[in-house]
Amino acid sequence: MIDSFRNIAKTIEPLKPLAVAVGLLCLIVVIVTVLTSETPEGDRYLIPAAVGLLWSLSSYVFIGYFASVPEKTRASQGLLQRMKGRLHRGWYWFVALAFTATTLAAAFMSYRLVSIWLGEHLG
């Protein structure tokens, strides 16, 4: 799994600046909306901006963290180096499982927020 994450992160690494730009834009929209909105109509773009901020932050963290997953240890390495490499990769496994769980939670939260937003503004 972590090797797949590394391959995906390295493939989409050129999109890291886009994730930052989208995240900053969404953050600006959230801040401006919270500070200036006085009516529910003024909050129209708060939910989409919050969802966009959540996913751009998640993308940035995914690319930044999983692009540096270490290679598997080789049998030709010494015992201490193999143990150190396995512990290091073990940490990435733990983070990958936590990241997967938080991504599922973010997907559920995004679905709920977008459905509420669409219900309020289109229904």
Rank of each mutant, 00 (worst) to 15 (best):
Leu15Trp: 01
Lys16Phe: 06
Pro17Met: 02
Pro17Leu: 02
Leu18Pro: 09
Val20Ala: 14
Ala21Ser: 08
Val22Lys: 13
Val22Arg: 14
Leu24Ile: 13
Leu27Gln: 06
Leu27Gly: 15
Val29His: 06
Val30Gln: 07
Val30Met: 10
Ile31Arg: 05
Ile31Val: 11
Thr33Ala: 02
Thr33Glu: 03
Val34Cys: 07
Leu35Cys: 13
Thr36Val: 07
Thr36Lys: 11
Ser37Phe: 06
Ser37Val: 02
Thr39Trp: 04
Pro40Asn: 02
Gly42Met: 03
Gly42Lys: 06
Asp43Leu: 15
Asp43His: 08
Arg44Lys: 14
Arg44Asp: 11
Tyr45Ser: 11
Leu46Met: 09
Leu46Ser: 12
Ile47Ser: 12
Ala49Cys: 03
Ala49Thr: 00
Ala50Cys: 08
Val51Gly: 10
Gly52Ser: 03
Gly52Asn: 05
Gly52Val: 02
Leu54Ile: 07
Leu57Met: 11
Ser58Leu: 15
Ile63Pro: 00
Ile63His: 04
Gly64Val: 02
Tyr65Asp: 07
Tyr65Pro: 07
Tyr65Met: 09
Phe66Ala: 13
Phe66Trp: 02
Ala67Leu: 06
Ala67Gln: 10
Ala67Trp: 05
Ser68Ala: 09
Ser68Asp: 13
Val69Leu: 14
Val69His: 10
Glu71Lys: 15
Lys72Gly: 06
Lys72Pro: 13
Lys72Met: 10
